[in-house]
Lab assay of single mutants.
Amino acid sequence: EVDTLELTRQVKEKLAKNGICQRIFGEKVLGLSQGSVSDMLSRPKPWSKLTQKGREPFIRMQLWLSDQL
């Protein structure tokens, strides 16, 4: 189980620290539009309420944070 709230907090922190905009992060890392990324980072759904497809971007965020992506 992933703590989506904590994960998105860490992602936002790393984006800010490295000067990466959400649009680029969305396109290059998540394969999503800036609007989708913005929504996901500001209002993450609980892991238990996400479908497999809904969980994929959060898994990619985890990999990106651990420099595996």
Rank of each mutant, 00 (worst) to 15 (best):
S66H: 13
L50S: 00
I20M: 12
Q52F: 04
P57H: 12
R43P: 03
C21F: 10
Q62S: 10
D3V: 02
L5T: 14
Q68C: 13
S33H: 08
T4Y: 02
S48W: 02
F58N: 00
Q68I: 08
S38D: 13
M61L: 06
P44G: 04
P57L: 15
S66G: 14
Q10C: 03
R9P: 08
Q10I: 06
Q62V: 03
Q34D: 10
E13R: 09
M61N: 00
L41V: 01
K53I: 12
E27D: 07
R43I: 03
I20C: 04
R55Q: 04
K14T: 15
I59T: 11
K17C: 06
T8H: 06
G31V: 01
K28Q: 14
T8K: 11
P44Q: 08
T8N: 07
V2G: 13
G54E: 15
T4V: 05
E1G: 10
R43C: 08
A16S: 13
F58Q: 00
S38E: 15
F25M: 02
L63Y: 09
N18Y: 08
Q10W: 04
M40N: 02
S66R: 14
W47L: 02
R9W: 02
V2D: 04
P57A: 13
S42Q: 10
K49M: 14
Q52G: 07
L63A: 15
S36Q: 15
A16K: 13
G26F: 12
E6I: 06
L63C: 08
L7R: 12
V11N: 08
R23G: 09
R9C: 06
L50G: 01
R43Q: 11
K28G: 07
E13G: 06
Q62H: 08
I24V: 12
D39V: 02
T4K: 08
K45Y: 04
E27M: 08
L69T: 06
A16W: 04
G35F: 10
I24W: 15
K53D: 04
P44R: 12
K12D: 12
F58I: 01
V29H: 02
T4I: 08
E6D: 15
R43A: 12
P57E: 08
Q34N: 14
S36K: 15
W47D: 01
Q52P: 14
I24N: 06
S38P: 06
N18C: 03
Q52A: 14
S42Y: 10
K14G: 01
G54P: 01
S42P: 07
S42E: 15
K14A: 11
T8M: 08
E56I: 15
R60T: 06
N18Q: 13
Q52I: 11
L7P: 09
I59P: 00
R55A: 02
G35S: 14
C21S: 15
R55W: 01
E56C: 00
S66F: 06
Q62L: 04
T8E: 05
Q10R: 12
L30F: 06
L63Q: 15
S42R: 11
D39R: 02
F25C: 01
L30T: 01
V11G: 08
Q10L: 13
S36G: 03
Q62Y: 04
E56T: 05
T8A: 11
L30H: 01
R23Q: 10
E6N: 11
